[in-house]
């Protein structure tokens, strides 16, 4: 069995990466230095490391949770904003393994271009893809939510104005 220790550094609260090895999503724990660590064991001589970014508006039930949070937050007034830029990460590496491996993934600040992560500590990492890009589906959903919110607020405003005019 080959031990793989993976460390994530350079993360902020917005990044929320999802790291998987050969299709298995890894669960990380935060250490005292504000980086995240995980240990993984495999029998393979080579692994495929995939890094993506969690986007709330890409989930299956995004519409349901958006409606619930809109209502609970009193028509969106007290609701935190969804990610406007919808920046996604597409990073894939082929890594050859020794018996003991320590891999560090350094995340760059979110941007619309450039490399998403820097991989260190691996034997001859083969970079398949490594970039930021704007997720068009998440972006469209964000715009749709914004339009719906504005329409609801206009409707509410008109209703309140009508009620005030009627009863005063």
């Amino acid at each position: 069995m080959k031990d793989v220790k993976i460390k994530l550094v350079g993360l902020n609260k917005k990044t929320r990466p999802q790291v998987s090895i050969d299709g298995n999503i890894l669960q990380f724990k935060k250490n005292e230095f504000d980086s995240y660590e995980c240990q993984f064991q495999t029998e393979n001589n080579e692994i495929e490391l995939v890094v993506t970014r969690e986007l709330e508006l890409k989930y299956k039930f995004w519409w349901l949770f958006a409606v619930i949070s809109f209502i609970v937050s009193i028509f969106g007034i007290f609701e935190p904003f969804y990610d406007r830029k919808s920046i996604a990460i597409d990073a894939r590496f082929k890594v050859k393994l020794d018996s003991q491996n320590s891999i560090t993934l350094k995340f760059n600040p979110l941007s619309t271009q450039g490399k998403a992560v820097t991989l260190e500590g691996a034997n001859e990492p083969g970079e398949i893809e490594n970039r930021f890009y704007i997720d068009k589906i998440a972006k469209k959903r964000w715009i749709l939510l914004l339009i719906l919110k504005i329409m609801v607020w206009i409707g509410l405003g008109c209703s309140i104005a009508f009620l005030i005019a009627k009863y005063l």
């Binding site: 999802q18 998987s20 999503i25 995939v50 993506t52 970014r53 969690e54 986007l55 709330e56 890409k58 989930y59 299956k60 039930f61 995004w62 949770f65 619930i68 949070s69 609970v72 937050s73 007290f78 609701e79 935190p80 996604a88 597409d90 894939r92 893809e129 970039r131 890009y133 997720d135």
Partner: peptide, 27 residues
């Protein structure tokens, strides 16, 4: 590109949504 593929989707969605609810309750 390989997109964000939410495996164990509902659990992760709930986790994300609960954080959003926590912020709403705080406000």
């Amino acid at each position: 590109p390989v997109e964000f593929n939410p495996q164990n989707t509902f659990k992760r969605e709930l986790g994300c949504f609960s954080l959003r609810l926590g912020k709403i309750f705080f406000n």
